[in-house]
Nucleic acid binder design. Structure first.
Lengths: 216, 216
DNA sequence: AAATTTATAGGGGTAAACCCCAATAAGAGG
DNA sequence: CCTCTTATTGGGGTTTACCCCTATAAATTT
């Protein structure tokens, strides 16, 4: 994988020398790095840009690294996090890992340790992203699905929720107290509007996107 | 939740006194505990029984706790793991957490620390199981799906990947260069083995679980 | 060597899915 | 009032899905 070339890595450390040192290490292997002198500065940018990985010092004035981690969770910004500290203990490390940190390094560390940690984080993030592309023909922007869903009438949506559960037309008709023929008509329209060729494909499509939200 | 009453917790420690002490702590709050004096003994049982949680000492003769953790992964036994050690360091803890341990305790610890760790592991495991109950009729543990998948022959799995994409039997037959009848036979077996009543339900089920991994 | 599993194929049948068509009634909006 | 959308039902027809059963050759396991 050579994907790390295009990934931006953030390094947050209030200690300028330390920050520059870590940035230099990463840049030496061709990783694009952006430095921040505080958690606040990073958070401000993180809401606009996407970073492939974050290297975060724990002991800092203002927001500590662990507090930054919590903020990121609250903001639902999911970025691979590598914590760095010179004064950590096992409990702190375990807590951070339980909160989802990808790695926890103690200063001092060898250059290669940091490089490995960052590259592992970058490739892991990429594999996770690639894994969500699993369905050969079902890959489509979620927005496209939403657009198609919104072209459905309320009743069609309702029938859809039953169809994708695998229910037969007869069962759906009984459930909704309408004629079998009516349900079959809806099924046809659903396949047409959703641009699929079978109920099975429809189920696969919608389920892969996290399912349909029932009509409230 | 009062589910912990029915969960069996395993405690593995070669030090009899330490093991008994931890077991006593857990039993004092009504948790069912089973002790093992070595990783080998535990692994032998773990392949038959299901434990809700495993408390594992790291420093042991024979298999170390970390080696037991690897074995569990190789055997695909997914049990919440709490590692315990008196001589750990941050790197060891971080590595263990990266491998999926749920907690990492350093001796000595207060009774409540162990109790909390075990109870958190038990309830977290339960919530994870409950979380997969989202679809009305598709509620099933992921492990159950995996079990059914593993009962399929390679060829059946292959056909399954086409079925859940919504392909017709005729298309699948052409793709695999086999008779239409053969594909239909596979479809029947799939529905039977996967315990569903239609291809649509099958697609919904598998897609909701993150899809099927194509046969390599 | 014998037994089991797997891949393959077919017969025959019911029910379901899906297609193209038309039509009525109720509401919403212009 | 007229039109457009939506919900509803129907006719008639083709194709699939799915069920139950049998059967053979090859591979695997015992």
């Amino acid at each position: 994988m050579d994907s790390s070339q295009t990934e931006q890595v953030a390094v947050v450390d209030d200690d300028g020398a330390m920050r520059e040192a870590m940035m230099a290490i990463l840049e030496s292997v061709g990783i694009q790095v952006q430095g921040f002198e505080s958690g606040q500065h990073f958070l401000a940018e993180a809401q606009r840009l996407r970073y492939g990985c974050l290297v975060l010092d724990i002991r800092m004035p203002g927001l500590s690294g662990l507090e930054v981690q919590k903020k990121l969770q609250e903001l639902q910004i999911d970025v691979p996090l590598i914590l760095v500290t010179g004064h950590g203990d096992i409990e702190m490390a375990v807590e951070a890992m339980k909160r989802g940190a990808r790695d926890f390094l103690t200063k001092p560390f060898r250059d290669q340790v940091l490089i490995d940690a960052v590259q592992n984080a970058l490739t892991a993030a990429h594999e996770a992203a690639a894994a969500s592309h699993h369905e050969d023909d079902l890959r489509m922007a979620n927005g496209e699905l939403q657009a198609r869903l919104s072209s459905l009438t309320p009743r069609e949506r309702e029938v859809l929720t039953y169809v994708v559960k695998g229910m037969r037309s007869k069962q759906i008709a009984a459930e909704l107290n309408i004629a079998l023929k009516t349900v079959e008509e809806y099924r046809s329209r659903l396949l047409d509007k959703m641009k699929v060729r079978s109920s099975t494909e429809l189920a696969s499509l919608t389920a892969a996107m996290g399912g349909i939200h029932p009509t409230p």
